[in-house]
Design a protein around this nucleic acid. Sequence first.
DNA 1: TTGTATGCGTTATCAA
DNA 2: TTGATAACGCATACAA
Lengths: 340, 340
Amino acid sequence: MAGGISLKELAAELKLAPSTVSRALNDSYEISDATKKKVISMAEKLNYHANPFARSLRENKSKTIAVIIPERINSFFAQVMDGIEDIAQEQGYHLLVYNTHEDVEKEKKIVNLLLNGRADAIVMSVSSQTSDISHLKKLHDRGLPIIFFDRICNDIPTTKFITNDYEIAFDATKHLIQQGCKKIAFLMLSKDLSITKERQRGYLDALKDEGMEMNPAFDFYCSHVEETNVQLIHEMLTSPSKPDGILASVEKLGFATYHAIKNTKIRIPEDLKLISFSNASIAGILSPSMTTITQPALTIGHECAKLLIKKLNKPKHYDLVDQVVTIPSVITVRESTFSE
Amino acid sequence: MAGGISLKELAAELKLAPSTVSRALNDSYEISDATKKKVISMAEKLNYHANPFARSLRENKSKTIAVIIPERINSFFAQVMDGIEDIAQEQGYHLLVYNTHEDVEKEKKIVNLLLNGRADAIVMSVSSQTSDISHLKKLHDRGLPIIFFDRICNDIPTTKFITNDYEIAFDATKHLIQQGCKKIAFLMLSKDLSITKERQRGYLDALKDEGMEMNPAFDFYCSHVEETNVQLIHEMLTSPSKPDGILASVEKLGFATYHAIKNTKIRIPEDLKLISFSNASIAGILSPSMTTITQPALTIGHECAKLLIKKLNKPKHYDLVDQVVTIPSVITVRESTFSE
DNA sequence: TTGTATGCGTTATCAA
DNA sequence: TTGATAACGCATACAA
């Protein structure tokens, strides 16, 4: 829209050839300092700004990274986004952001939109509905650099950044047991999610390690509808075979548990101990405050962006090798898991 | 990057002229149905995707909207973003997202980045540090459509979407008074912010309306550093002239108040009643739950995007007239303002 | 209904 | 050190 002045016009004003002006602005070694100075000052005076689309067309790159997340109202994803943006801004990259709302159909649409090269690369965390990954394969096969974080696709050979899901879930479960829990439930989203699998494995191994029985009723699948989850958790917590400990594999299920015990006689931590993955600072102002597994969200964002931009700047020198990079989480013990 | 097939190549494959193929794909009336069908099916078969930069260069528009917000970890802004994205996605627009982190220098940099036409339009909420608005004026003068929401710039003649800041702050203050508060403090960010001014005006008028004195110490300015705010609020709440009611003009100051009373003897709502602007669903699981002023965030996002896209699609027919559109908030009364 | 030619604003190749 | 020219991929004015 807002048509500024073009390179050609700027060149005319300077009585120079467009190519000369272009080189001067790009600080080419072929151009004399005198000319560079003149060009730059005139460009500023006339408020010249290179047209990014002409440049993208010419150079076949957009200086744009697409970020796809499953939800926006989530402290973890918001922090990762902030981390990605830190690096991107510093390196002159722009961020195209898409929210799939946990909907795989929406995810497919978005991914297909990116097939045209609008973004140079993609950072994403898949939706909880994503099991068929052909749309993502297609993207990768097309040669578009793609990095996964948190909810990853193991079948796509690229670099993934996660936290130590297995270990920290193991530790969290052990923590609940140490605090006296005998019957621990595991709250999760879809079973297809990488984080579900790993965190559940950690949970189950901790139980096994302690010689505790695994009650299938305590493998608790939730939906992405908030009200339903609250309802289901409420039912579980008021049933005869109710758990005395909960490990919530994602933030919103931790919060849903607080919702579920509202207007009940269940007290945390006396009747029920709770630990949840969450990066929300408000975990500390809940009453009782909530013990959380805090993920290195900002760092994950930073690392994703750094690696991707390295790759984009020097495609020959860097590769998105097929590996999973693990950055450890930290358990912040608060009142919801106090033993007394 | 990932070089797909071009229009020319597609045309060659079809033994048609590029212009014909272009017109067929754009569903031009000049092209026969038979040709259209052939072209479309071949395009699908060969996985053709129009290069967005060539198109943007040619058409002088990018199908991209830039959104600038002051913080990402904020339920209001996150919901507005979701609202904008709903409409944008539906209308084939992409979202470039920038977080200023309440830093006006960062805001200036971002705004200057957008001077080159990378985005067709801008939706923004200014940082709390923004008082000099020359960078925004420049953008507007350049003819770039820009819309403000929530934290608006009155001096820039365009459409702004806000909630009924004055009235709802007035009502909220009245609510506190009705619940028995005698000394009400008003928590705010920078005094330059449009929302600060309006909400404070509502607060003050409510006090005046009730014949209550206005204690300047209760006009409480906060920083954007979380810890400092908690500290300052704590000091206020433990000083001899402490308030018995608080109206927090933004979410994080409401939360900061909960933080500040942790480990004190102050009880909400018995000793202190609190109402805060906030769209966070977790307001309901705080203990006591927090009375909130819920802004129509999703609707604000929708309206911003709708108006902007209307303008972009038919620049002649729509104008971003200089007016403030108000969409009312709702007070959700919870335990933090119970009278007993 | 389809084809030919041009230009959007850059950068790069080649020539001067 | 600078200038002329072509090309990126697309959409349109004009020609057929």
